[in-house]
Design a protein around this nucleic acid. Structure first.
Length: 325
DNA sequence: CATCAGGGCCCTG
DNA sequence: CAGGGCCCTGAT
């Protein structure tokens, strides 16, 4: 097992667009927690391992501002000394991944006319859709989520990390990071299957090859429109419409990717939006689209994360049943 | 004990 | 473009 110790530090500040919600942006309680943690969070402070190209860092982000005058203090932990140019690159990467420069004013006006859910929106005003990960990293997570229960997804990611991940120590903390695509080059499908990832072994193997071969350019896609980005993502082995949708929302910050509702999502939406056990997917789709339009997925995200936040302090029986840990 | 479906996708006909 | 099959696991 590889352990990386990061001792050198550099500090800088980022001013996100206002208003900004620190905890809602840097912590998404709906995401599954595995044992070998990739990040850590407490109110006003967030840290994670952080890949930029082939380099590996750790970052600590602290909330040093307010909702309306936001300010983030970033500390980068690295092995080598970082020059100003490289620091700027890391800074821009943080800004992109967490959507720190997005203008949400139109969305913030829209939610005011929603009498029923405005109290919830108001709690999270300034929250962004974000992905702490590189494209490849989020794809790996999306693949272990496919066609299984959350408990098994956790197990799969943990055993993959234990075999191929890197342990990173910094600032009296230890977190893990996902391997690079190239590091699976000499790993066979059988070895992956031995980690009980099932038929996903082939997906992980071929997907990693796709990245090594340069079949996709994470950064080029940032300039593509939604349809083209989706098309490019779906060229990757193991990526279908649902996985593409997750990436379009979290990695590429498209706010309206509410085009498909899976049965398990349908059950949770039914409770959230109608207080009923089951409402037809078509009705949910039409209602959400007509109310929130080009911010449909973002609006759903606010309501969705809110119930998972509530779940951290109180038991919600129907939700426990639906997420099937 | 057996059967089944799950936070989809690939492949076939 | 509809439908079967897929690795494993926990629920029934």
């Amino acid at each position: 097992m590889k352990t990386l110790i990061l001792k050198r530090t550099k500090k800088f500040f980022i001013i996100p667009t206002s208003p900004f919600n620190f905890d809602g942006t840097f912590h998404k309680p709906s995401h599954f927690p595995n044992k070998l943690k990739l990040d850590d969070w407490k109110p006003k402070e967030y840290c994670q391992t952080f890949r930029v190209d082939r380099d590996l860092f750790a970052i600590v982000i602290k909330d040093k501002g307010t909702l309306l005058r936001p300010k983030l203090e970033i500390t980068i932990y690295s092995r080598a000394n970082l020059n100003a140019q490289y620091l700027e690159k890391i800074k821009q990467e943080i800004i992109y991944r967490f959507g720190l420069n997005f203008n949400l004013s139109e969305f913030n006006r829209l939610i005011k006319s929603d009498k029923r859910f405005y109290p919830i929106f108001k709690k999270w005003i300034g929250m962004r859709s974000s992905s702490q990960y590189t494209l490849y990293e989020l794809l790996i997570i999306a693949i272990v989520l496919q066609n299984t229960t959350v408990r098994r997804s956790q197990q799969m990611l943990d055993s993959l990390l234990a075999s191929f991940g890197t342990k990173v120590s910094f600032d009296n903390k230890t977190l893990w990071t996902i391997w690079l695509p190239k590091e699976l080059e000499n790993v066979s499908e059988e070895e992956l299957r031995a980690l009980k990832v099932g038929y996903r072994a082939k997906f992980i193997k071929k997907l990693s090859e796709n990245f090594v071969d340069g079949k996709v350019d994470e950064f080029k896609l940032r300039d593509f429109d939604k349809e083209n980005t989706k098309e490019e993502l779906m060229k990757l082995y193991g990526v279908g419409p649902e996985t593409a949708r997750i990436l379009l929302f979290e990695t590429y910050h498209f706010y309206d990717v509410f085009d498909h509702i899976a049965p398990w999502q349908q059950k949770i939406y039914s409770r959230l939006f109608y207080g009923k056990k089951l409402v037809s997917a078509n009705k949910i789709y039409n209602d959400i689209k007509s109310q929130y339009g080009k911010y449909s997925m973002l609006a759903v995200h606010y309501i969705w994360e809110d119930i998972f936040w509530k779940r951290t302090t109180k038991n919600i029986p129907w939700l426990e049943k639906e997420i099937r840990l």
